[in-house]
Amino acid sequence: MSQSEIEILFVSHKYPPSVGGMEKQSFELINTAALYLKAHTLVYDNKESILTFFLQLNRRILTKVKENPGIKLIHFNDGLIASAASFHKGYRHIKRAVTIHGLDIVFPFSYFQKKVIPRFNAFDRIIAVSQATAEAAQLRGIDPSKIITIPNGVDPIQVPAQVTETNSVSKPYFITLGRAVKRKGFSWLMKDVIPAIQGDFKLLMVGPFDHEPTWKERLLHLMPAKLYHLMTLFMGYPTDQQAIRKLLKAHPEKIQHLGKVPFEQLKSLLTNAQAFLMPNIEVAGDMEGFGLVCLEASTAGTIVVASELEGITSAVTHNGNGLLLASKNQNAWVEQLQAILADPAHYKKLGLQFKQNTLKQYSWDIMARSYCQSFLDLCQ
């Protein structure tokens, strides 16, 4: 059986018009895989409640399968929707695969870990986005013979021939990008690293950020600690905001949070930065599944300095397409960033070399073809 003869049903609740890393991965997988095989879809389009989508899913899958008897495999886009599908009935004769991204396998809710995760063994293939995610699945009792690792792809950031700075920053700067969740390590970087670096520079932070506490934040802080942890993990809530606000006030001359910025400005900010920083730290019950933002920064020609932690190591190889440092090692981080400030030309040249390595190793097409080959292997 060739790939072109395979019919796959892709089931996803993370899909445009919603915006996010998982939505992007799901979109690129489905649309690129459709170039190589016949793709059917059941995706959440925001035209109904997400609860309705989940409640109607079993019936809709059965309808799709009846209408398209050539479907040989059903792919679920993450562990959450796979958890629901593990209770479905009526299509167990069809091969089933699921992609796991990180948090959807380590989420520290006792019932989920003890009762739901073991049900993943009923799936025929578990596709992890990183080696760290694959190892987390194995530690939770998922059959290692069913697990393969397929890294995500990346959209290359197209930089104009003449890049102009759009933030009117006149001094050298480092940049971070992402939501203010604790695992990102932003407050640790602001507290333990940036004040210890000598020289005239700034740390620019980009991403969703509330400069003042919101009612939702105040409400969440009224919860017991364990419930707060579970709720904020499930919601992807920015748990580091409170600490970041205090540190912004403590170091206004060194650190600036820009919030969300237009994409054109972000491209310019990344391209002109001395380095892109991803200082992740360990947080119980959470993990960085892959580290896609590192690849995006690398495609802008900016050198990436990241923690050697979790799924980041599947996106960044030390001295291959970035620099990896031990998480929370203050001396290592200060020394490396000081060296970048001291010799920006060297590290800019290195960043451009790393960019070429990233472009060679990671693309949505490479990812999709790897998925298609996995599907072919299962269906033969």
Rank of each mutant, 00 (worst) to 15 (best):
F10N: 12
G199P: 10
K64G: 00
F27V: 03
L80W: 12
V116D: 09
E308Y: 08
R179G: 09
E296W: 09
K349S: 14
N357G: 05
P144N: 04
I81V: 11
P224G: 06
R218S: 08
I150M: 12
T166K: 14
K226A: 14
L227K: 05
E253W: 00
Q361C: 02
I281M: 10
P279Y: 02
V65R: 09
I157V: 15
P17T: 15
K66I: 01
V65M: 06
G311W: 11
L258R: 01
G70A: 14
P213L: 08
A97F: 01
T41K: 14
A273P: 02
E23D: 05
L35I: 06
P238H: 13
T52L: 14
G141D: 03
Q198Y: 14
V98R: 07
K182Q: 14
A345M: 05
F234A: 13
A180L: 07
L29E: 13
T99C: 11
A243T: 14
N319Y: 07
A326V: 09
E67W: 02
E282M: 03
H318S: 11
R183W: 06
V11E: 09
A326N: 09
N280P: 02
D192L: 12
P144I: 01
S4K: 15
A161C: 12
E48Q: 13
L37N: 05
E28C: 06
F87G: 02
T299G: 03
T164H: 15
I147T: 09
A128G: 03
I71S: 06
Q3R: 07
T358S: 09
Q131Y: 02
I194R: 10
A345I: 09
R245N: 12
V106C: 11
M22L: 15
T133P: 05
L42F: 01
P252Y: 02
L103T: 07
I197F: 11
K89Y: 08
K115S: 13
P16K: 05
